[in-house]
């Protein structure tokens, strides 16, 4: 398997930076965007192996984004991130085809573990 391409969508720069730092250390190719619209734009011309999407975002939130993506690229695995996981978001995420959930904050190990688990499952 070649280099992993991961798109990370979060409105908070520190989360993007953290993820980038962890994934680059693992040798992944990382693409960072701060909202759903930008994510959709990027997706139009770039292919990714995995998406890491924050649930709570202004305008379109993680769930909305996931719905839109799944319409066009149903096979694209998406991991939902949340600093405030509720029963409702988990349920909505699961129904719309989220591959996995990860609670913020997470350690680098937890993040890698989750990503690898999803990727393994996808194969």
């Amino acid at each position: 398997m070649g280099k992993m391409h991961i798109l990370i969508v979060d409105d908070d720069q520190i989360v993007l930076d953290s993820c980038k730092r962890v994934f680059e250390a693992e040798g992944f190719e990382v693409y960072l965007v701060s909202d759903a619209i930008k994510a959709l734009e990027v997706l139009e011309h770039t292919t990714f192996d995995l998406l890491l999407v924050d649930v709570k975002m202004p305008e379109y939130d993680g769930i909305d984004l996931m719905r839109m993506i799944k319409k066009k690229w149903p096979q694209l695995p998406i991991i939902l991130m949340s600093g405030y996981p509720t029963h409702e978001t988990m349920e909505a995420g699961a129904q719309n085809g989220a591959a996995q959930f990860i609670d913020k904050p997470f350690t680098p190990e937890e993040l890698i573990k989750t990503v690898r688990m999803v990727m393994k499952h996808e194969k």
Partner: peptide, 8 residues
């Protein structure tokens, strides 16, 4: 979010 940064 900041905690994620600190931990990472």
């Amino acid at each position: 979010n900041p905690l994620t940064g600190i931990l990472t």
